Simulated scan of single mutants.
Amino acid sequence: MSAAGVPSPLSRTSSRRHFWQRDLVGIAIILAAALLGYVFVPDNLALLTRIIAILFLVLSLDLVTGYCGVATLGHAALFGAGAYAAGIAAVTFNITSAFSMVAIGALAGGVAGLVCGVVILRGHGLAQLVLSIAVIHLFHEAANKASTLTGGSDGLSGIAPDPILGLFEFDLFGRTAYLFGILLLLIIFVMLRILVRSPFGMLCRGIRQDPLRVSAMGASVKATLIKMYIISGAVAGVGGAFNAVSTQVVGLDSLSFTNSAEALVMLVLGGAGSLYGAFVGTIVFVWFEDVVSSANPFHWLTTVGALLIAVVLFAPKGLYGTAAALFERYRRRLK
């Protein structure tokens, strides 16, 4: 630290190194968990692949809610836009390369993010929630009415992605889809970690904490939020496109309000504003839902509800956020 109280270049370099070391550990844990799932749960790769697809949605939600403080219950509109765009590209235009479908899904999600951002950001607080609910219903109804392209209530089927690199086919066991999803997830995660630590990411954090002060400093709050909405839409679009590639069908449920609400629940469960919380919340919620619904198909929602109440009461920062805070407190005591 310099005499003026400004961090020296050496301390900033040390801080960056510390963050990257922590991220490398996080990436290593993600890879290890993915490989363990592939080896020890080969008969349930469909569930693991579903978790990966939902993870993209929750990560994208974390960008606008956890980092920018924008309340939304319509984020599945971005996920569904990517899914339908990739599906239509494959079925109608015969674009069946998995990478091309994902790119098209990211583009469609970004455009949907721009549209949603312009509409939702016109409101504040409760009005934002109402606008986001209206947006998801409008997207849902548009997909239902455009049945010649989307299949309407019957869904869009006949999606047949080409083998990856011409070698790895998308089989019924989901091996290729799972590994493809892990590759996409790692690429997106690294990009998002760079984004949230960039000056743009810090500006978004500042807007979440005090938008008036950020505006007084000369930064455009609305323009910044719309940019983050577009980025978030691209990430959600990747998730939607990956879901279309892995399941080879797109239904109206990808644009459902339930998807948006559950994504928000997963984010709160894991802890908003860290990206890692999205991983923890999604994995715990989907796994817990699968196990409990299999054991008690009639009353499993009661058990899930009890879990969420317990987390909100005893771990208000979410599972990851609370664990990280306790670890940091313990580390400071050791010093």
Rank of each mutant, 00 (worst) to 15 (best):
D210Q: 11
V119H: 02
A295S: 07
F288V: 10
A143K: 01
F173K: 14
D171T: 14
V284Q: 03
L10N: 09
L45N: 07
A143S: 09
G125F: 10
G166R: 08
A160S: 15
V238T: 10
S11E: 14
N296T: 12
T150E: 10
L183D: 07
G218C: 02
L313W: 05
L48C: 07
A310S: 08
A310P: 09
L107G: 10
I51P: 08
F288Y: 10
L47C: 04
L225Y: 01
L179P: 04
G181A: 02
R332V: 13
V135H: 02
N259P: 10
L301G: 06
M266I: 06
I136R: 03
L55D: 05
V190I: 14
A89H: 00
E289D: 14
K335S: 14
A241K: 12
Y276I: 07
D23S: 13
V265R: 05
M266N: 11
G240T: 06
D171S: 15
T13A: 15
G109D: 00
M202T: 14
V58W: 01
V58G: 08
V111L: 11
E262N: 11
P42Q: 01
L35C: 10
T247F: 15
G305K: 12
G74H: 05
I283V: 15
I283G: 05
A127M: 11
G237I: 02
F173I: 14
I88G: 04
A272G: 10
G109T: 00
A261M: 11
A98D: 02
D162R: 14
R329F: 00
A143M: 10
G66V: 01
N243S: 15
A219C: 09
G158D: 07
G109Y: 00
